[in-house]
């Protein structure tokens, strides 16, 4: 379990993170979602003990990151936004080095390296110098070093950054596969990635968590009503169909979709409603004999929530924020 309480991190006078209070349960995959400069990387660096907090308490597996950073580091595997790889080493040499550095016993090193190579599907490149690897493979090697010592907690900063679509799908599966055995914290500014891989999402803005929950929870909490995408067979009865839809209780508007339909002889419509009217809407259209081809929730619903929540990020993050007097300084660990 990761427990964060009133975490603040300042760079000089600038507040990068804080106040952040959150709890992450064992085996969960949690996503930190925010725009660039929102404070995601700083939060992850504190969790990985790369940085120490200005104030507040962070406990990883019950151990305080300020009092016992050495112990915390044994439990955490961290992939920064740029994989920390030595170009001149081969993949296997590098993972052996990382495993030994993380305190894996000599007898266990080869076994653990083999497991990490297998899990990240990098075994085929084990003898390849890292400088010769593609970006996607380097990212995989980065994850391999983060899990080679079987840590309880895996912290991944933008693991899909710069990957091609195929690599993104593979990376998504890899991250999902880490859940359960490991507690995983992933950051991204790409909403679809977080929603695809994570059990829970923390939306972070200006260093603060402004919302948290599953995708469904965030949608129901922040969306004003529901947006539906409806595809109808084009024809003479279209006007009547529009009238039938508007007559459904709860429907507030019916409009033609901004992007024309890709389907031949079809019309795409966007319906907004106060609540979930999918059943009533489909019943009304089918009952009235109109050709209903498709009815689904808007794919960009959560994106609009994210944009709403993150609206002031980026600009605010660059502002200089004066230090709050409230947080008490933490004594340096002996």
């Amino acid at each position: 379990m990761i427990e964060i309480s009133e975490l603040y991190k300042y760079y000089g006078d600038r507040r990068a993170v804080g106040p952040v209070t959150a709890t992450i349960d064992k085996g969960e995959i949690v996503g930190l979602l925010g725009l660039n400069g929102a404070g995601k990387t700083t939060t992850l660096r504190v969790l990985a003990c790369d940085l120490l907090p200005t104030s507040g308490t962070v406990r990883v597996g019950g151990i305080d990151v300020v009092e016992s950073p050495h112990e915390v580091r044994k439990k955490v595997g961290y992939l920064p936004d740029t994989p920390p790889v030595y170009p001149e080493m081969t993949v296997e040499e590098y993972l052996v080095f990382a495993a030994k550095l993380r305190g894996v016993g000599a007898a266990q090193v080869q076994k653990r390296v083999g497991e990490a190579l297998e899990l990240t599907q990098t075994a085929v490149e084990r003898s390849t110098p890292i400088f010769a690897l593609s970006h996607g493979f380097r990212q995989r090697v980065g994850i391999a070093q983060a899990i080679v010592h079987r840590p309880e907690f895996v912290v991944l900063d933008e693991p899909i950054s710069g990957l091609d679509p195929v690599q993104i799908v593979e990376m998504r599966d890899l991250v999902r596969g880490l859940g359960g055995e490991h507690t995983v914290v992933v950051s991204s500014h790409i909403l679809s990635e977080i929603s695809e891989t994570c059990d829970r999402i923390f939306v972070i803005r200006d260093g603060e968590i402004v919302a948290s929950g599953s995708e469904a929870e965030l949608s129901s909490r922040f969306l004003r009503g529901m947006r539906l995408e409806v595809t109808l067979r084009a024809g003479d009865g279209l006007d009547a169909a529009l009238e039938a839809m508007r007559a459904v209780s709860g429907v507030t508007s019916v409009e033609h979709a901004a992007v024309p339909s890709r389907e031949p002889r079809a019309v795409d419509l966007t319906v907004t409603a106060d609540g979930d009217v999918r059943e009533e809407l489909s019943r009304a259209l089918v009952g009235a004999g109109h050709g209903l081809l498709e009815l689904r929730r808007g794919e960009r619903e959560l994106e609009s929530v994210f944009l709403e929540l993150s609206r002031s990020a980026g600009t605010a993050a660059r502002k200089k924020v004066k230090k709050k007097p409230a947080p008490e300084p933490i004594e340096e660990a002996p």
Binding site: A48, C49, D50, H70, E71, R73, K74, V76, Y78, P80, T82, P83, P84, V85, Y86, P87, A98, L101, R102, G103, Q145
Partner: peptide, 14 residues
């Protein structure tokens, strides 16, 4: 410059 200092900083190494 390479970002590899992070590997050392986040390992249980003093």
């Amino acid at each position: 410059q390479l970002g590899t200092l992070t590997l050392l900083n986040t390992s249980p190494v003093r």
